[in-house]
């Protein structure tokens, strides 16, 4: 393959690992949908089907010690950063073995050991803390980077503008990853933003912008590496604008009455990041099926693990309120 011989590109082996990671997220999310519909999962669930390339591309570029804040659509980021599917699934089942010990749920996945400072159910809610974490790294002269994930909908909320302004003003080592899937829940970008290129909002603060196609994990990873290096080298924060697609509804069960079904079908056929990487690598059916079987086993095992997990005692609700 000529592609992988180009300078700065990844080894075919690494890309195959990415494919497997993305497939794990895909199968995990499909399982979550299935178990939700079976009535087993409480809460509000948002799956990342279609956005796996962003999660894997960015998270695989991060170093140990880097931190990130996620969004309500957090399963992908969390798995991509190395939290075991068992711990994520157990959280969705509200078990003590979950990555937030049953206190968080799908929209509040944490794994501090792996730098996950929390998925946030308030759109834009995590951006200020990422700016502050990056400030701490700068003040202590630590070579670490803080990464915020958020969607295009978040670029309309005040915390986005205040955080980008502050981060650029103080030149902190932060990377702001816009997962631009063109939808804020049911509201299309045309109805929520007067401008078509949302990176102009970062340019307005004088922030360095780097763009990537989120359906091409190799490109996402390459750009994320540049962005993280830029921030880590003390050259200031980066706004990483990633074009991606939400190939499913906003939440599980969303009938998507607001969406053109034909367009969605076309996106599913042409912009699926798993399929695109598989085709790029020329992975045979046999090899793909084998990888698929492996991740499916992991996912099935995560459900079994979660179901066998420990229910918190009701009065555990009164723990962990204060340190």
């Amino acid at each position: 393959m000529a592609k992988v011989e180009r300078k700065g590109t990844l080894s075919e082996q690494r890309l195959r690992t990415f494919l497997r990671e993305m497939l794990l997220i895909r199968r995990f999310e499909e399982k979550v949908e299935e178990r939700f519909r079976a009535g087993e999962l409480p809460g509000f669930l948002h799956v990342a089907i279609g956005q796996e390339g962003v999660a894997v591309g960015v998270c695989q570029a991060m170093d140990d010690g880097d931190v990130f804040a996620s969004t309500h659509r957090a399963h992908g980021h969390t798995l991509a950063r190395g939290t075991h599917p068992n711990a994520v699934m157990a959280e969705l089942y509200g078990k003590l073995e979950g990555c937030s010990h049953g206190y968080g749920g799908s929209m509040h996945l944490y794994d501090v050991e792996r730098g996950n400072l929390g998925a946030n159910a308030v759109v834009g809610g995590g951006l200020p803390a990422i700016t502050g974490a990056a400030l701490a790294f700068k003040l202590r002269q630590e070579p670490r980077v803080a990464v915020a994930f958020f969607g295009d909908g978040a670029t309309n909320i005040g915390t986005f503008h205040e955080s980008l302004n502050l981060a650029q003003l103080w030149q902190v080592p932060a990377v702001f990853v816009l997962e631009d899937n063109h939808w804020a829940e049911s509201t299309p970008e045309l109805q929520h933003s007067p401008i078509r290129d949302l990176s102009k909002r970062a340019e307005a603060f004088g922030m360095r912008v780097m763009k990537a196609d989120g359906q091409d994990v190799e490109e996402v990873h390459r750009v994320a590496q540049r962005a993280l290096k830029h921030a880590r080298d003390g050259k200031g924060p980066v706004f990483m604008h990633v074009q991606t697609e939400r190939l499913v509804g906003h939440y599980i069960g969303d009938p998507q009455v607001y969406r053109d079904k034909e367009q969605l079908r076309e996106l599913q056929e042409t912009r699926d990041p798993v399929t695109l990487l598989r085709e790029k690598l020329g992975v045979s059916d046999e090899e793909f099926d084998e990888a698929d079987r492996e991740v499916q086993e992991l996912v099935d095992a995560s459900v079994a693990f979660a179901k066998a997990g420990t229910d918190p005692k009701p009065e555990d609700a009164l723990k962990n309120i204060y340190a």
């Binding site: 979950g98 937030s100 010990h101 049953g102 206190y103 968080g104 509040h108 944490y110 794994d111 501090v112 050991e113 400072l117 929390g118 723990k319 962990n320 309120i321 204060y322 340190a323």
Partner: peptide, 10 residues
Amino acid sequence: HRYMSGGQLK
């Protein structure tokens, strides 16, 4: 944050 993280954060 402390609560939602199940006690991981301060």
